[in-house]
Structures are given as C-alpha cells and as structure tokens.
Simulated assay, not measured.
Amino acid sequence: MRPRRVAAILMTTAVAGLLAIAPLARASDVLVDRPGSHALGDATLTVAAAGDLVDLRVVEADGRESLGFDLRAPGSRWLVLGSPSGEVWASGGADVFGWRREADGLYRAIEIIDAGGRPTRRLPDAFFDRLPAAVKANWAEAQATARPGPAPAGPFRVTPTRPIDEIRAEAIQARPPAEEGEFLESDLVDLETLDPRVKLDIRYAGDDNFLGVPVYTSARAFLQRPAAEALKRAQAKLGERGFGLLIHDGYRPWYVTKVFREATPPKYHGFVADPARGSRHNRGCAVDLSLYDLETGKPVDMPTGYDDFSRCAFSDYPGVTRAQAANRAALREALEAEGFLHIPNEWWHFDYKDWKRYPIQNAAFEDL
C-alpha cells in the first residue's frame, strides 16, 4: 500500500479513551478514530484492520484507488483527518508523514526540517490547529519526544518456508506462464559492457540478500538493449555529479521468481512477484540499483538497504535524512529522465517504459 492521489488525509495519534468522533473543525473535514468507511467529498475513505496493520485507503468516484497506506498495529490509537487542501499528513504513533500534491496530480514526500536543518516530525500549525482540543495535549507531548528513527540495520531477512535447494529443484522443472500476442525479439546486453563506472553488486549470487542464501549461479546482470542504452545515458549524467551506478539485479530467469515466491512467507508476498504472471525482471526490463561515490568507491547513504520489506523502503517515504532524500532523488531523477519508471514500494527498483513489449524468459545466465 502506498500514497498516490487523494484529497488530503491526516492521521494522528488519538488519546487513549477517545470514544467518539470529535466535532469537525471544518465542514469539509472528516475525522475518524476507528475502522469504517466515510464520505470524503466524492471519494470514500476506508480504514480497516488488515493482519498486523491498519489499512487506510481512498477510492475515487470512478473506482480508482487514490491513496493506500499502512499504519502499524491495529491495537494502537490513531485519528484520521481528511481535508480539501493540497497536502496529506499522516501519523502512526508519534511519526509524521507528509505529502504535497504537485502539478501532475501526484503526491510527493514533504521533507520536514527545523530551522537548524535537522530532520523533525513536528506537525505544521495549520494542521495541528484543526485537531480536537482533547487530542492536542497528547499529540503535542508525543511530538515533543519524537525522534527520526534510524533505517533498519543490516540486510532484511526472512526465514525461507522450505529448504532453498528443494524449492529450486521444483522451480527449474516448472514452466513459465503461456503468453499471447506479438513481442519484440530479446536482445539482452551484459551491463558490465556499458561503462566502466557501472559496477555490479549482485546480491542474489551470494548470501547478502533477503533469503540469506545464493540463488543465482553467477554474478551477472543483463537488460534489453534499449533499456541498457538508457541506463548508460543515465550513468553519463550521474557521472558529472560524481556518482556511479551500483547494479544489484537486472534480468532474472523466471524460475528464480518462482523460487522467491515459494520461499517467501505469505505475509510478504506483496514484495515478491507472482510467477503466475511473471516479473518485469523476467522480461529483461527491470533493474535494481543504487549509487556509489566515484571518488571513494563507497555506496552512498540511502534510506534502507537493498530488498528491505518495510515501509522505510517506499520510494516517497518521508522519514529519512536530508542526505538520504537527496541521494534517492538523484537516482530517481536520472533514471526517469531516460524512460525508466519507479515503483512506489522500492526506492531501488525501476522498470523500463517498454517492458510490455518483451516476453517472459527463463534462460539461465550461462545460456545467454
């Protein structure tokens, strides 16, 4: 779930014992302190407990889901405020998240900093003033003690559902889904041949990945030729700023997608592709990557490590440092300028614009 388009929403921590929805500060505002559906102009705001999260979403009159966001444990107290302004503010616990609607109709994360340039999570006065009086004291106290939380330390790990060797043997024997239609002929390019500044850090060839075991048979990365050439242009522009591209993954044989899905616990299936539909990695049109400093050779500071399954990895997650936000933006701007599309829940993942024109593939690296 992730923020996209919506009439502005504010989630805050409500005081323990708040049993009823307080009087609205403005006629167009909507306050919610428990699961349910509520009219928000022509849209519908729905808050529901979903497993170990609270799911907030807004569905427009035409059926489009314009906002989706997770809110920690459903047992915690929270409050939702819907407003007609061009900003979205959300909170779970003492954390504050903000987005602003831009010219393209999409929301972008608002970086919250104090006068000294330090990241903060203070709610703007314009929004704080709208809260019911009974909530303000507790909210102010929570904000006074709030501190930006650090990104998860070390690589994210899940415990595979079964032994990887067993899953891999089954996946290799399986067959990709049948596809209909006409596709372009595959022309996969080895990314090591693009530019000496493009470096490989193929996590699935070792044990520094979310499964903790090697899955690939060799540390290589490929993309369809148009995508590879676009990546080369992005590197040229980033090189002028002192950055090099650090590639974690590119083309992925279909059987590996099946391994990931079978090995991942169901509660994390939203972060791994469904082999029944295939992955854009399987088409050679998706790349996972970061940046490194050309002068030092060291990776730059990003909001999380690679393959983190938390909301801290969302491409617009606002609870990051200024350096992390700047580095994430530099990567995204360079790739989007060359025809790559970001996805909302992984800052490192980009799809090439023509991915639909290529077929799902299952060739091992050694056969390319």
Rank of each mutant, 00 (worst) to 15 (best):
E229H: 10
F156S: 02
Y268N: 06
A137Q: 08
L331Q: 05
L231Q: 09
Q361Y: 07
E170T: 04
P119G: 05
P275F: 00
G17I: 05
F350T: 04
D293W: 12
A146E: 06
D29H: 10
L368Y: 00
A313V: 04
V15A: 08
L56Y: 13
A146I: 02
R2T: 08
M302T: 12
Y292E: 05
V215E: 00
A227C: 09
P303F: 05
L10S: 07
A48L: 13
L191R: 09
D308R: 04
A273F: 02
P148F: 08
S279L: 01
A73F: 08
A126W: 14
P265L: 11
P226D: 09
V47E: 01
S310L: 00
V47H: 01
R332Q: 13
D187A: 03
P344V: 09
R77Y: 02
K199M: 05
R100D: 14
G339P: 15
W355R: 15
W355C: 11
S28D: 14
W254Y: 14
L131A: 09
P148G: 05
L211T: 05
G181N: 11
V300C: 11
F156E: 00
R4M: 15
R203D: 11
L188Y: 10
R26P: 15
L53V: 15
S279F: 03
P275W: 00
A329F: 03
H342N: 13
E240C: 06
A363H: 03
A94F: 04
A325K: 10
R4G: 12
S91W: 04
A337F: 12
L223K: 14
P152T: 01
Y352D: 06
D125V: 11
P74I: 13
R328I: 10
E240V: 10
S310K: 00
Q173D: 05
I113W: 02
P163I: 01
A228K: 15
D190F: 10
A134I: 14
G297M: 03
L341P: 02
P124M: 05
R5V: 15
L56R: 11
Y251L: 04
L188M: 07
H281N: 00
F222P: 01
A109F: 15
P3E: 07
L223Q: 08
F97G: 14
S315D: 05
S310E: 03
T46A: 08
H269L: 02
V135N: 02
A73C: 08
D351P: 11
D52H: 11
Y292S: 03
P275S: 03
D249M: 04
R101V: 13
W99P: 05
K258C: 07
A137H: 09
D70M: 12
T321I: 01
R175K: 13
V80G: 11
D249G: 02
L368G: 01
A263E: 00
V300D: 15
F350Q: 09
A153D: 09
P150H: 06
F309D: 12
Y352W: 01
E185L: 12
L341H: 14
F260A: 10
P23C: 14
K232C: 00
T217W: 08
G98P: 09
V32P: 03
V96L: 13
P303L: 04
D114R: 12
F69Q: 14
A329W: 03
K199Y: 06
A115I: 03
P318F: 14
T161I: 02
R57Y: 08
P265C: 11
G250E: 14
R34H: 12
